[in-house]
Each structure stands twice: as structure tokens, then as C-alpha cells.
Amino acid sequence: MTRINVRVDGVTYDDDVEPRTLLVHYLREQLGKVGTVVGCDTSNCGACTVHLDGAAVKSCTVLAVQADDGEVTTIEGLAQDGSLHPMQKAFHEMHGLQCGFCTPGMIMASVDLLRENPDPSETEVREGIEGNLCRCTGYQNIVRAVQQAAGEMRGGARAPSGDGHVSPAEVDTAAAPHVAGAQS
């Protein structure tokens, strides 16, 4: 066993782990952070994405011992004071999920993308989340959600670029019926 000291979602933990323990298993099984899920177990799907020291990583492809002295943010640490992170809100509003399994990883990867590129084009969003697979949505509303969140997070500080903000009115109502209020 190896002793690690790691800060997860703002709380510091001192734990003994086996060196072979994957970060995702440590988060889920030792800390109960089951919001982070195991999807493919082959480093492909990105469902287990968390932030380690400020960068998005696949937590099934990092050893828990490698997070020693580090800071981890999971999907459970994203909301502040009970209000959803703008990315979480946008996924909800733009119907960026169906079954929801990929969603924690999608959101963590998208937040990381906006850290580097606050105003991504549609193509940049698609490339930025290429490490995350969704088998339900066809990605359309996920991309819209990321662009909506980008618009909200940029706030009024900068003029919208034209393609950054997507208002619900522009959304295909067949793809996102509840957004446009079609089903009242």
C-alpha cells in the first residue's frame, strides 16, 4: 500500500491505496464519488473524465498514486453552492444527453476545452470532445450545449462572435422539443 494525499472536489483525503488502483476506482470505491463512471475501460470513451491539476484526463488511465499531492475535480464538484455549473445547465437546457452515461465525462471535457478556447466554433467543439463517445445523441445537442455554455461563461465581457451563442429559438425543435416548449 502507498499513502496518498489528494484533494478531491475541495476536500483533502489521506488514504492508503495499492499502486495498481486506477484513479477512477479510487474515486468511486474509496471516496464514493460515483458520479464519475467507468464506460469502456479501454481509454476510448472518456466517460471517466475528471480534472487532475486543472487538465481533463481519463481517470481509468491514471493510477491513484499519480494523483498524490494533486487536485482532482469530478462532476460532483462542479456545481457551486447548489447552483449548476453553466455547462451542466446548458446540457440540461439544450437536451445534450439521452441516457446520460457519457454526460459526466462530456461535461468535464467540455469545461476543459473552454478553459483553453472560450469561444469554440462547432468544428472546434467536435474536435475538442473527440475523446468522448456518445452512443445516443449523435452529438448535435451536445455541441449546441457546449456553445451555449461558452456564450454564458463569456458573459457580457465580449461581444458574441455570431456562432458562439445558440438561442433555443435557433434549435431544431424536433431534436430538442422541450427547449422550444413544443410540448407544453
Partner: peptide
Amino acid sequence: VADRQVRAR
């Protein structure tokens, strides 16, 4: 190479 998360590590 791979994807954003993999390139980070």
C-alpha cells in the same frame, strides 16, 4: 495524436 485528455498525460 489520440484526444485532448490523452494529450494532457
